[in-house]
Protein backbone atom coordinates (compact mmCIF):
# COMPACT_ATOMS: atom_id res chain seq x y z
CA UNK A 1 0.00 0.00 0.00
CA UNK A 2 1.09 3.53 -0.46
CA UNK A 3 0.37 6.89 -1.91
CA UNK A 4 1.11 8.34 -5.30
CA UNK A 5 1.95 11.97 -5.96
CA UNK A 6 0.00 13.33 -8.93
CA UNK A 7 1.51 16.77 -8.35
CA UNK A 8 4.55 17.22 -6.09
CA UNK A 9 3.78 20.64 -4.58
CA UNK A 10 6.39 23.30 -3.90
CA UNK A 11 8.61 21.35 -1.52
CA UNK A 12 7.25 18.10 -0.14
CA UNK A 13 9.76 15.99 1.80
CA UNK A 14 9.74 13.08 4.20
CA UNK A 15 10.86 14.18 7.66
CA UNK A 16 10.81 13.00 11.25
CA UNK A 17 11.99 14.41 14.59
CA UNK A 18 15.49 14.73 13.16
CA UNK A 19 18.76 12.88 12.77
CA UNK A 20 20.75 13.13 15.98
CA UNK A 21 24.11 11.72 16.97
CA UNK A 22 26.09 12.60 13.85
CA UNK A 23 26.51 16.38 14.03
CA UNK A 24 30.12 15.86 15.13
CA UNK A 25 30.64 14.26 11.70
CA UNK A 26 29.27 17.34 9.93
CA UNK A 27 25.94 15.62 9.33
CA UNK A 28 23.08 18.06 9.88
CA UNK A 29 20.01 17.06 11.87
CA UNK A 30 17.43 17.81 9.13
CA UNK A 31 13.95 16.79 10.37
CA UNK A 32 10.61 18.55 10.55
CA UNK A 33 10.70 22.34 10.81
CA UNK A 34 7.66 22.17 13.10
CA UNK A 35 8.35 19.12 15.27
CA UNK A 36 5.23 19.72 17.35
CA UNK A 37 2.89 19.36 14.38
CA UNK A 38 4.98 16.44 13.10
CA UNK A 39 4.71 14.55 16.38
CA UNK A 40 0.98 15.22 16.87
CA UNK A 41 0.24 14.09 13.29
CA UNK A 42 1.86 10.76 14.15
CA UNK A 43 -0.03 10.43 17.44
CA UNK A 44 -3.37 11.12 15.72
CA UNK A 45 -2.60 8.44 13.13
CA UNK A 46 -1.95 5.96 15.94
CA UNK A 47 1.84 5.98 15.54
CA UNK A 48 4.78 6.49 17.87
CA UNK A 49 5.86 10.11 17.47
CA UNK A 50 9.06 9.27 15.58
CA UNK A 51 7.63 7.87 12.35
CA UNK A 52 8.26 9.64 9.05
CA UNK A 53 5.68 12.20 7.93
CA UNK A 54 5.31 14.33 4.81
CA UNK A 55 6.27 17.97 5.29
CA UNK A 56 4.24 20.05 2.85
CA UNK A 57 5.32 23.61 2.09
CA UNK A 58 2.85 26.39 1.14
CA UNK A 59 1.77 24.92 -2.18
CA UNK A 60 0.60 21.42 -1.40
CA UNK A 61 0.85 18.27 -3.51
CA UNK A 62 -1.97 16.24 -5.02
CA UNK A 63 -1.92 12.72 -3.65
CA UNK A 64 -3.79 9.53 -4.57
CA UNK A 65 -4.23 6.83 -1.96
CA UNK A 66 -3.80 3.34 -3.40
CA UNK A 67 -5.51 1.66 -0.42
CA UNK A 68 -7.82 2.58 2.46
CA UNK A 69 -5.72 4.65 4.83
CA UNK A 70 -5.96 6.25 8.21
CA UNK A 71 -4.18 9.61 8.07
CA UNK A 72 -3.86 12.88 10.00
CA UNK A 73 -3.08 16.41 8.81
CA UNK A 74 -1.59 19.00 11.16
CA UNK A 75 0.40 22.22 10.98
CA UNK A 76 -0.38 24.96 8.48
CA UNK A 77 -3.85 25.30 7.00
CA UNK A 78 -3.17 25.00 3.28
CA UNK A 79 -6.85 24.37 2.43
CA UNK A 80 -6.71 20.57 2.29
CA UNK A 81 -9.46 18.82 0.31
CA UNK A 82 -10.40 15.17 -0.03
CA UNK A 83 -12.03 14.46 -3.38
CA UNK A 84 -12.73 18.17 -3.74
CA UNK A 85 -14.31 18.61 -0.33
CA UNK A 86 -12.69 20.73 2.39
CA UNK A 87 -11.49 18.45 5.16
CA UNK A 88 -10.80 19.06 8.86
CA UNK A 89 -7.28 18.98 10.27
CA UNK A 90 -5.78 17.87 13.63
CA UNK A 91 -7.88 14.67 13.83
CA UNK A 92 -7.81 11.13 12.43
CA UNK A 93 -9.20 10.84 8.91
CA UNK A 94 -10.20 7.61 7.24
CA UNK A 95 -9.69 7.87 3.50
CA UNK A 96 -10.97 5.29 1.06
CA UNK A 97 -8.86 3.72 -1.64
CA UNK A 98 -8.49 5.93 -4.74
CA UNK A 99 -9.29 9.09 -2.79
CA UNK A 100 -7.48 12.24 -3.87
CA UNK A 101 -5.98 14.65 -1.35
CA UNK A 102 -5.26 18.12 -2.71
CA UNK A 103 -4.51 21.56 -1.34
CA UNK A 104 -5.65 25.06 -2.18
CA UNK A 105 -4.66 28.52 -1.04
CA UNK A 106 -2.57 28.85 2.12
CA UNK A 107 -4.83 30.19 4.90
CA UNK A 108 -2.42 30.26 7.82
CA UNK A 109 1.05 28.92 8.45
CA UNK A 110 3.71 27.65 6.07
CA UNK A 111 4.11 23.90 6.58
CA UNK A 112 1.51 21.14 6.90
CA UNK A 113 2.26 17.57 8.02
CA UNK A 114 0.68 14.36 6.78
CA UNK A 115 1.05 11.17 8.79
CA UNK A 116 -0.25 7.75 7.74
CA UNK A 117 -1.11 5.06 10.27
CA UNK A 118 1.81 2.62 10.39
CA UNK A 119 4.19 5.15 8.89
CA UNK A 120 5.93 5.28 5.53
CA UNK A 121 7.85 2.16 4.53
CA UNK A 122 11.20 3.79 3.77
CA UNK A 123 14.59 2.77 5.14
CA UNK A 124 16.19 4.66 8.02
CA UNK A 125 19.55 6.20 7.25
CA UNK A 126 21.92 7.00 10.11
CA UNK A 127 19.05 6.44 12.53
CA UNK A 128 16.47 8.70 10.89
CA UNK A 129 13.96 8.91 8.07
CA UNK A 130 14.62 12.63 7.50
CA UNK A 131 15.52 13.85 4.02
CA UNK A 132 19.01 15.38 3.89
CA UNK A 133 18.45 17.53 0.83
CA UNK A 134 21.97 19.02 0.58
CA UNK A 135 23.63 15.59 0.54
CA UNK A 136 20.87 13.93 -1.51
CA UNK A 137 20.31 11.13 0.99
CA UNK A 138 17.66 9.92 3.46
CA UNK A 139 13.89 10.26 3.15
CA UNK A 140 12.48 9.23 -0.21
CA UNK A 141 15.46 8.81 -2.58
CA UNK A 142 17.21 11.72 -0.90
CA UNK A 143 15.04 14.32 -2.56
CA UNK A 144 11.78 16.25 -2.51
CA UNK A 145 8.82 14.40 -3.99
CA UNK A 146 8.19 14.59 -7.72
CA UNK A 147 5.12 13.79 -9.79
CA UNK A 148 4.40 10.05 -10.10
CA UNK A 149 6.38 9.02 -7.04
CA UNK A 150 4.91 6.01 -5.29
CA UNK A 151 5.68 6.16 -1.58
CA UNK A 152 5.11 2.83 0.13
CA UNK A 153 3.30 2.74 3.47
CA UNK A 154 3.33 0.17 6.26
CA UNK A 155 0.10 -1.53 7.37
CA UNK A 156 -1.90 0.58 9.82
CA UNK A 157 -1.06 0.20 13.51
CA UNK A 158 -3.54 -1.66 15.78
CA UNK A 159 -4.46 1.73 17.26
CA UNK A 160 -5.15 2.98 13.75
CA UNK A 161 -7.16 -0.10 12.79
CA UNK A 162 -9.24 0.34 15.96
CA UNK A 163 -10.55 3.60 14.52
CA UNK A 164 -11.75 2.20 11.20
CA UNK A 165 -15.20 0.97 12.36
CA UNK A 166 -15.87 4.34 14.00
CA UNK A 167 -15.65 5.99 10.67
CA UNK A 168 -17.81 4.06 8.27
CA UNK A 169 -18.57 6.80 5.79
CA UNK A 170 -18.54 7.55 2.12
CA UNK A 171 -15.24 8.57 0.55
CA UNK A 172 -13.73 9.59 3.80
CA UNK A 173 -14.64 10.08 7.43
CA UNK A 174 -13.22 12.53 9.91
CA UNK A 175 -13.14 11.80 13.63
CA UNK A 176 -15.49 14.06 15.55
CA UNK A 177 -12.85 14.79 18.18
CA UNK A 178 -9.66 16.83 18.04
CA UNK A 179 -7.08 17.61 20.73
CA UNK A 180 -7.66 20.65 22.91
CA UNK A 181 -5.80 23.48 21.13
CA UNK A 182 -4.69 24.88 24.49
CA UNK A 183 -1.89 22.32 24.19
CA UNK A 184 -0.68 23.84 20.91
CA UNK A 185 2.09 26.40 20.47
CA UNK A 186 0.65 29.88 20.03
CA UNK A 187 0.63 29.74 16.22
CA UNK A 188 0.19 33.24 14.83
CA UNK A 189 1.41 35.31 11.92
CA UNK A 190 3.91 38.08 12.80
CA UNK A 191 4.70 36.40 16.15
CA UNK A 192 6.79 37.54 19.09
CA UNK A 193 9.33 34.82 19.76
CA UNK A 194 10.78 34.11 23.15
CA UNK A 195 14.57 34.03 23.16
CA UNK A 196 17.51 33.91 25.50
CA UNK A 197 20.62 36.00 24.88
CA UNK A 198 23.17 34.32 22.64
CA UNK A 199 26.80 33.64 23.63
CA UNK A 200 28.06 36.77 21.79
CA UNK A 201 25.21 39.14 22.75
CA UNK A 202 27.55 41.33 24.80
CA UNK A 203 29.88 41.86 21.81
CA UNK A 204 27.20 43.84 19.94
CA UNK A 205 27.07 47.63 20.06
CA UNK A 206 24.80 49.24 22.63
CA UNK A 207 22.57 50.39 19.83
CA UNK A 208 22.25 46.89 18.35
CA UNK A 209 21.62 45.40 21.79
CA UNK A 210 18.69 47.77 22.14
CA UNK A 211 17.32 47.44 18.61
CA UNK A 212 17.15 43.65 18.71
CA UNK A 213 14.38 43.99 21.33
CA UNK A 214 12.51 46.95 19.90
CA UNK A 215 12.63 46.45 16.13
CA UNK A 216 10.39 44.28 13.98
CA UNK A 217 12.23 42.02 11.50
CA UNK A 218 10.82 40.78 8.23
CA UNK A 219 11.43 37.19 7.16
CA UNK A 220 12.84 37.69 3.65
CA UNK A 221 12.08 35.70 0.53
CA UNK A 222 15.60 34.20 0.75
CA UNK A 223 14.49 32.02 3.63
CA UNK A 224 14.37 28.25 3.54
CA UNK A 225 14.84 25.13 5.64
CA UNK A 226 18.46 26.12 6.30
CA UNK A 227 17.73 29.54 7.71
CA UNK A 228 15.50 32.60 7.75
CA UNK A 229 17.20 35.77 6.57
CA UNK A 230 15.82 38.75 8.45
CA UNK A 231 15.49 42.29 7.22
CA UNK A 232 15.05 45.37 9.34
CA UNK A 233 17.78 47.27 11.08
CA UNK A 234 21.34 46.06 10.59
CA UNK A 235 23.19 44.91 13.69
CA UNK A 236 26.88 45.44 14.39
CA UNK A 237 29.53 44.45 16.88
CA UNK A 238 30.96 47.25 19.03
CA UNK A 239 34.36 46.28 17.64
CA UNK A 240 35.53 43.77 15.08
CA UNK A 241 36.00 40.30 16.48
CA UNK A 242 37.54 37.20 14.93
CA UNK A 243 35.59 34.23 16.27
CA UNK A 244 36.71 30.62 16.22
CA UNK A 245 34.13 28.32 14.60
CA UNK A 246 32.02 26.34 17.01
CA UNK A 247 28.67 24.55 17.13
CA UNK A 248 25.42 26.31 16.25
CA UNK A 249 21.90 24.99 16.60
CA UNK A 250 18.26 25.24 15.46
CA UNK A 251 17.02 28.70 16.51
CA UNK A 252 20.46 30.34 16.77
CA UNK A 253 20.24 33.98 15.58
CA UNK A 254 23.62 34.82 14.05
CA UNK A 255 24.74 38.04 12.42
CA UNK A 256 27.11 37.97 9.42
CA UNK A 257 29.22 41.06 8.64
CA UNK A 258 26.47 42.62 6.46
CA UNK A 259 24.47 43.14 9.67
CA UNK A 260 21.33 41.25 8.63
CA UNK A 261 20.52 38.52 11.13
CA UNK A 262 19.88 34.91 10.10
CA UNK A 263 17.87 32.48 12.23
CA UNK A 264 19.18 28.96 11.72
CA UNK A 265 16.45 26.42 10.98
CA UNK A 266 16.20 22.61 10.71
CA UNK A 267 18.76 22.22 7.88
CA UNK A 268 21.39 24.49 9.47
CA UNK A 269 25.06 23.59 9.23
CA UNK A 270 26.55 22.01 12.32
CA UNK A 271 29.15 24.71 12.99
CA UNK A 272 29.56 28.40 12.27
CA UNK A 273 31.71 31.40 13.02
CA UNK A 274 29.34 34.38 13.07
CA UNK A 275 28.47 36.10 16.34
CA UNK A 276 25.31 34.69 17.90
CA UNK A 277 23.15 37.45 19.32
CA UNK A 278 20.09 35.42 20.37
CA UNK A 279 18.76 31.91 20.67
CA UNK A 280 15.07 31.21 20.09
CA UNK A 281 13.71 28.96 22.84
CA UNK A 282 12.86 25.46 21.74
CA UNK A 283 9.12 25.64 22.44
CA UNK A 284 8.78 28.58 20.05
CA UNK A 285 10.56 26.95 17.09
CA UNK A 286 7.27 25.46 15.79
CA UNK A 287 5.80 28.98 15.71
CA UNK A 288 8.81 30.23 13.75
CA UNK A 289 8.58 27.24 11.39
CA UNK A 290 5.07 28.39 10.42
CA UNK A 291 6.08 31.98 9.60
CA UNK A 292 5.69 32.70 5.88
CA UNK A 293 8.33 34.85 4.10
CA UNK A 294 7.11 38.44 4.14
CA UNK A 295 5.72 38.21 7.66
CA UNK A 296 7.52 39.86 10.55
CA UNK A 297 8.83 38.72 13.89
CA UNK A 298 9.90 40.40 17.12
CA UNK A 299 11.91 39.06 20.03
CA UNK A 300 11.17 38.95 23.74
CA UNK A 301 13.67 37.87 26.38
CA UNK A 302 13.04 35.04 28.82
CA UNK A 303 15.47 33.45 31.26
CA UNK A 304 17.12 30.13 30.54
CA UNK A 305 15.25 28.64 33.49
CA UNK A 306 11.93 29.84 32.10
CA UNK A 307 12.77 28.45 28.65
CA UNK A 308 13.52 25.05 30.14
CA UNK A 309 10.38 25.09 32.30
CA UNK A 310 8.35 25.85 29.18
CA UNK A 311 10.00 22.93 27.42
CA UNK A 312 9.32 20.56 30.32
CA UNK A 313 5.68 21.67 30.39
CA UNK A 314 5.43 21.10 26.62
CA UNK A 315 6.75 17.56 26.99
CA UNK A 316 4.34 16.91 29.88
CA UNK A 317 1.47 18.15 27.72
CA UNK A 318 2.53 15.98 24.80
CA UNK A 319 2.71 12.94 27.09
CA UNK A 320 -0.82 13.71 28.28
CA UNK A 321 -1.98 14.30 24.74
CA UNK A 322 -0.55 10.97 23.61
CA UNK A 323 -2.42 9.26 26.45
CA UNK A 324 -5.71 11.01 25.63
CA UNK A 325 -5.39 10.06 21.96
CA UNK A 326 -4.66 6.45 22.88
CA UNK A 327 -7.86 6.35 24.93
CA UNK A 328 -9.84 7.63 21.95
CA UNK A 329 -8.23 5.06 19.69
CA UNK A 330 -9.19 2.24 22.04
CA UNK A 331 -12.87 3.23 22.27
Amino acid sequence: MGLETLKPGMLTTLQDKGRYGHQREGIITSGAMDTFACRVANMLAGNADDEAVLEITLVGPTIRFTEDQLIALTGADLSPELNGERVAMWRPLLVKKESILSFGAPVSGCRAYLAVSGGFAIPKLMGSYATYLQAGIGGYKGRALQARDLIPCNSPTPAGIALFPQMAGADYAAASWTPDPQFYPNYTSNPTLRVIKGPEYELFSGNSQEQIWTERFQVSAQSDRMGYRLQGVSLYLSEEAELISTAVTFGTVQVPPDGNPIVLMADHQTTGGYPRILQVVRVDLPILAQVVPGQTITFEEVSLEEAQQLYIRREQNLTQLARAIQLKHNL
Partner: peptide, 14 residues
Protein backbone atom coordinates in the same frame (compact mmCIF):
# COMPACT_ATOMS: atom_id res chain seq x y z
CA UNK B 1 27.94 28.74 28.59
CA UNK B 2 24.44 27.78 27.43
CA UNK B 3 23.78 27.45 23.70
CA UNK B 4 20.04 27.84 24.06
CA UNK B 5 17.92 25.69 26.35
CA UNK B 6 19.14 22.33 25.07
CA UNK B 7 22.93 22.61 24.78
CA UNK B 8 25.93 23.72 26.80
CA UNK B 9 29.27 24.69 25.32
CA UNK B 10 32.48 24.01 27.21
CA UNK B 11 35.23 26.35 26.02
CA UNK B 12 38.95 25.73 26.60
CA UNK B 13 41.06 28.81 25.86
CA UNK B 14 40.56 31.09 22.89
Amino acid sequence: YPLGDSAITVQFGD
